[in-house]
Design a protein around this nucleic acid. Structure first.
Lengths: 140, 140
DNA sequence: TGACATAGGTGGGATTACCAACCATTCTGA
DNA sequence: TCAGAATGGTTGGTAATCCCACCTATGTCA
């Protein structure tokens, strides 16, 4: 393996970074009585109105898992279901105003939590890092 | 906010990247009947022999959560407990040979899964990314 | 119309996670 | 020295998460 070592070190860094950020997100979720998954649901619904199966697809979860998840969030008034007018089988999920508020607050909190570390990079490095991550995360 | 926008875009990229990598890790874990947490435990134990509370600290979990987690993994023969000779209250956790094998296989699998995306970067970009991630993840 | 596919939900079970309470061991200071 | 406090780990109880197997309703198309 020619350039294998640089990739190995990078994989390690990426994985550690992942767990670290996950920890931050989990903490912020917990402070608002949200699991990491619920936090993510709110994030996804911020700019989408998916059907249940789509949402499950985004999350990589079984649709049956979403039933309970949506139930609980709906009971909390954070999101709502609506039957699709086009297809009687389909249920669309979307944020309520309260859910949108919370999502916005969470987003700001995440920003505040991660910004300090990112601000240790100078502006040039930031755009560089963003540019490097871009092809990794792909569209969406 | 002067340089706020660059940070905002970066936060988004970092979070998306986090969920993406988490998805990969979760999938690899699931293929081996391991939860993400268990996967992480194996990773941590690869180069450590922590006591239960230490391990809980690494994971950001309550120590009582670890009891069951360790139980199940121990029953599967992946890791083992041993009382500390120095302090009768302390229990140390460590990988069995089988657990070490599995951890190694998982590590390679993670590497294989993440390498393609990282190899899309040329070598210079890789070292750059690693260098940029380094101060974010800190030591450990 | 009838067979098949798709969307969502239910029910059951294992796991994950928290908290409070508990026992054993160790430490502390009067 | 020894009683009380502190620490380390486990247990019990509860809620949430997640999967799988199945069910019903709706849609599709031959």
């Amino acid at each position: 393996m020619t350039s294998g070592d640089s990739v190995t070190a990078l994989v390690d860094a990426v994985v550690r970074n992942t767990f670290q950020v996950t920890g931050v997100l989990t903490r912020i979720g917990a402070e608002n009585d949200l699991s990491l998954t619920q936090l993510r649901v709110l994030g996804i619904l911020r700019d989408r109105r998916p059907r249940v199966t789509e949402l499950a697809g985004f999350l990589g979860l079984d649709k049956s898992t979403l039933s309970g998840l949506i139930d609980r969030a709906e009971r909390r008034g954070l999101l709502a279901r609506e039957k699709s007018p086009d297809d009687g089988r389909v249920v669309e999920v979307f944020l309520t105003p309260a859910g949108r508020d919370l999502a916005q607050r969470l987003y700001e909190e995440v920003h505040r939590a991660l910004a300090p570390a990112l601000e240790r990079l100078d502006p040039e490095q930031r755009t560089q890092l963003a540019a490097l991550l871009e092809p990794l995360v792909g569209p969406g």
